[in-house]
Simulated scan of single mutants.
Amino acid sequence: MTSTTRPLSDGATLSYREAGQGAPVVLIHGVGLQSAAWDPQIEALSMTHRVIALDMPGHGGSSPLAVDATLPDFVAWLARALDALELEAVSLAGHSMGALITLGFAAAHPDRVTRAALLNPVYRRSPEARAAVIARADEIRQGQIDLDTPLTRWFGDSSADQAARADVAEWLGAVDLDGYATAYSAFARGDTTYADRIGTIPCPLWAITGDGDPNSTPAMSWAIAAAAPRGRVLVIAGHRHMVNLTAPEAVNAALTDWLASDTEGAKT
Rank of each mutant, 00 (worst) to 15 (best):
Gln162Thr: 12
Gly199Ala: 09
Val175Trp: 08
Thr102Gln: 03
Arg130Val: 02
Ala129Phe: 00
Gln162Val: 04
Arg165Cys: 09
Glu170Gln: 13
Leu118Ile: 14
Pro214Met: 13
Ile201Gly: 05
Asp167Arg: 14
Phe155Pro: 04
Ile198Arg: 09
Arg136Gln: 09
Ala207His: 08
Asn120His: 10
Asp148Gly: 10
Trp171Asp: 09
Pro127Tyr: 03
Asp196Lys: 15
Thr149Asp: 05
Ala164Tyr: 03
Asp146Pro: 04
Arg124Gly: 00
Ala174Glu: 11
Arg189Leu: 08
Ala131Met: 07
Asp157Cys: 08
His109Glu: 05
Thr193Cys: 12
Leu177Ile: 11
Ala188Lys: 04
Glu139Asp: 14
Leu172Glu: 10
Ser185Cys: 08
Ala131Ser: 15
Thr149Met: 09
Ala195Thr: 11
Ala181Tyr: 06
Ala207Ile: 10
Ala195Ile: 14
Ala174His: 08
Arg112Phe: 02
Ala207Leu: 06
Ala106His: 07
Thr114Ile: 06
Val168Ala: 15
Arg136His: 04
Thr182His: 11
Leu177Tyr: 09
Phe105Tyr: 13
Ile140Asp: 00
Asp178Val: 13
Ala160Pro: 00
Gln144Leu: 12
Cys203Asp: 06
Leu177Asn: 10
Thr182Val: 15
Cys203Pro: 07
Ile134Lys: 14
Leu177His: 11
Asn120Ile: 00
Arg165Tyr: 01
Ser158Gly: 14
Thr149Cys: 03
Ala183Arg: 02
Ser185Ile: 08
Ser158Thr: 15
Pro127Val: 09
Pro110Asp: 03
Ser158Tyr: 07
Asp157Gln: 12
Thr193Met: 12
Ala195Asn: 13
Ile208Asp: 00
Ala181Phe: 02
Leu147Met: 15
Pro150Phe: 08
Asp146Gln: 04
Ala207Asp: 01
Gln144Tyr: 01
Arg112Trp: 06
Thr192Met: 01
Val175Asp: 11
Tyr180Gln: 13
Val168Trp: 06
Leu118Ser: 12
Ala135Met: 01
Arg125Ser: 10
Asp191Met: 13
Ser185Asp: 13
Ala181Glu: 01
Leu103Asn: 13
Ala117Glu: 05
Asp213Phe: 07
Arg124Cys: 07
Ser158Arg: 12
Arg115Ser: 09
Asp178Lys: 09
His109Tyr: 09
Pro110Tyr: 04
Arg112Tyr: 05
Gly179Asp: 07
Thr182Leu: 10
Glu128Thr: 13
Tyr194Ala: 07
Ser159Phe: 02
Ala137Lys: 00
Ile201Asp: 03
Arg189Gly: 06
Tyr194Val: 01
Ser185Glu: 10
Ala108Asp: 10
Ile101Trp: 00
Leu177Glu: 13
Ala116Tyr: 05
Leu205Gly: 01
Phe187Pro: 01
Arg153Thr: 11
Asp161Ala: 11
Gly179Pro: 00
Glu170Pro: 09
Thr114Asn: 11
Glu139Pro: 07
Ala132Asn: 10
Glu139Gly: 15
Leu103Tyr: 02
Ala135Tyr: 02
Gln162Ala: 12
Arg153Ser: 13
Asp213Trp: 01
Gly156Leu: 08
Arg124Val: 10
Asp211Arg: 03
Arg153Gly: 04
Arg165Phe: 03
Phe105Asn: 03
